[in-house]
């Protein structure tokens, strides 16, 4: 099925707007990685994944396991924009009693949030286990797992990379959002993961490297699931932390910093508005 590039690009912009507004409203959060992965979420939920908000528990659904849980604002936005959540719920990010905590919690939204995550690396084996259960039970869905590049420092990731290849988990795609930034600076300065594609190939994965902001490239990479059915797939998506908001781009500071009111306004202006998508209503916090 051919994707609609403009629609997906608009979806990505909408995710960015939501991310800024949600985090600004919450008063804290992780905007940088979420902005950088907007095209990935837009293509996954808008095109690549077979899923139905009307039947979220369909055992044959495609699933996203978000392993770098801190970028969940983008996931929540994608879920709301595709009908899994009421839009106004986005305004509850990180609040007491919300179903949208600062790192995703599966039990608050079963079958919508596939996995609780936050401690890095842990989602990779979970995604693999879901994929292996699909093979065991005859479910046809494809499993995607999104990780950050700094997350590749975690040993559990490499344990799982080994066993996914060993067990021929071909219904699994690992997406690495590679922006070369982590909290303390550049990944290449702190503990370089290069040459990542070579490493993954050496681990017997089918590797594709793309510009993670190019809708066509992302769409092609994430729908190429039937080639090499016995081999797990890795997509290295080169991304820019803070993408779409010039003053946030490529600055590690925006990993986990909340924009001020002025910064949020500037950010929204930079992203631009698209009339096709109405912004979600932000509820005022109740006065104490």
């Amino acid at each position: 099925m051919q994707h609609n590039k403009d629609e997906l690009q608009n979806f990505a912009h909408q995710i960015r707007r939501d991310v800024i507004r949600m985090i600004r409203h919450a008063g804290s959060g992780h905007p940088g990685g979420a902005l950088g992965a907007a095209e990935l979420f837009a293509v996954l939920y808008g095109h690549a994944m077979k899923h139905d908000p009307g039947a979220p528990e369909d055992p044959h659904r495609d699933r996203l396991v978000l392993s770098n849980g801190h970028i969940c604002a983008a996931l929540y936005s994608a879920l709301a924009r595709t009908g899994y959540l009421p839009l106004e719920e986005l305004g509850t990010l990180r609040q007491l009693g919300s179903r949208l905590p600062g790192h995703p919690s599966r039990t608050k939204l079963p079958a919508v949030i596939e996995n609780s995550s936050g401690p890095l690396g842990q989602g990779v084996p979970v995604a693999k286990g879901i994929a292996q259960a699909n093979l065991q039970l005859g479910f046809t869905g494809h499993i995607y797992c999104l990780v950050g590049d700094g997350e590749m420092h975690e040993g559990i990731v490499w344990e799982s990379l080994l066993s996914a290849a060993q067990h021929r988990v071909g219904n699994l795609t690992l997406i690495v959002s590679y922006n070369n930034l982590q909290i303390d600076g550049r990944v290449s300065d702190i503990k370089d993961i290069q040459p990542l594609a070579d490493k993954l190939r050496a681990f017997r994965w089918d590797v594709t490297e793309i510009d993670g902001h190019n809708i066509d490239a992302v769409a092609e990479a994430l729908t190429n699931r039937h080639a090499k059915p016995d081999q797990p797939k890795a997509v290295i998506a080169n991304t820019v932390m803070g993408k779409g908001v010039p003053f946030m781009e490529n600055l590690a500071k925006w990993h986990g910093t909340c924009p001020t009111e002025d910064e949020a306004t500037q950010a929204l202006e930079a992203i631009g508005t698209v009339p096709a998508y109405q912004d979600f209503p932000i509820m005022e916090k109740a006065e104490a």
Binding site: P59, V65, R106, E114, N115, Q122, G123, V124, P125, V126, A127, K128, G129, I130, A131, Q132, A133, N134, Q136, L137, F139, G155, I156, E159, S160, L162, S163, Q166
Partner: peptide, 21 residues
């Protein structure tokens, strides 16, 4: 058989359980 990878084993088991095994 998960090899000498206990973290991987536990995470994988969790994913399997989330999918009905």
């Amino acid at each position: 058989q998960m090899g000498i990878s206990e973290n991987d084993m536990i995470g994988t088991a969790a994913g399997m359980a989330l999918n009905g095994l």
